[in-house]
Amino acid sequence: MRSDKEGARAPLGLKIAAGLGLAFLHLPILLIFVYAFTTEERSYQWPPPGFTLKWFGVAWGRADLWEALILSLKVASLATLLAMLLGTLCAAAMSRTKFFGRESISLLIILPIALPGIVTGVALRSAFNLAEIPFSFWTLIIGHATFCVVMVYNNAVARFRRLHGSLMEAAADLGADGFQAFRYVVLPNIGTALLAGGMLAFALSFDEVIVTTFTAGQQQTLPIWMLEELVRPRQRPVTNVAAMVVALATFLPILLAYRLTRDGDQTAGAGK
């Protein structure tokens, strides 16, 4: 998106500042990747004394890493699924009619994403305690679903608004019952928004630490596992290999979500 083709060239100083800013944001990430290949396993020294692929092999053989990765994938998938169901229903209800207090309820739905994770975490933990629900895989999923719902809701509600009113009436008028109207009119129109919301929710859940810490039992998701690995250095570069996996597992869905909603008039991460 270039506003002016010529005559709007940035001054050199600005270019340098922008370059430095980008470097500051992305060099540390690059370093993580570089250290996944280092031969030195105890400390991060620069430059790396040598390069090796052996850590990928080691990581592949670590059962604890696999366990954490699989748990994270499971939690993220189930939380996303739950969020897609609840978020879609929420969006459908909120866009259907105007009622007193609609804006307030809309704010309440979005709130979990705006609240600091620590508040959500503490609140959920005390709620589970009060209700005497033991911490488990399922409390973890519920915890993640609180903010995943927001991603789906935000994406779906904009589409629903466009959809409501006469389009639904037209479907009913042309002989579609409730299910057919959903299948042939609603779903095709909100499909990409749902998918985008789901992917963002997945990415968000996959690398979540704070709420996880408060709502998990003995479970160790991949980010928690990484945190623990950093504290006691043993085969340090394995953590970096895991970091690469996390980066890819979260970056790809976000990129896809962006592409899915780019040509529509909605932005996927508008509420983020």
């Binding site: 009113g165 006469s166 389009l167 009436e169 037209a170 479907a171 009913a172 008028d173 042309l174 002989g175 579609a176 019952d177 009119v185 095709p188 129109n189």
Partner: peptide, 20 residues
């Protein structure tokens, strides 16, 4: 319900399905 009445409507904003 509307779909059992043998009646059809031309809507003011036309209400054409944008994805079809």
């Amino acid at each position: 319900p509307p779909y059992r009445r043998g009646v059809n409507t031309v809507f003011q904003d036309y209400a054409l399905f944008p994805h079809l």
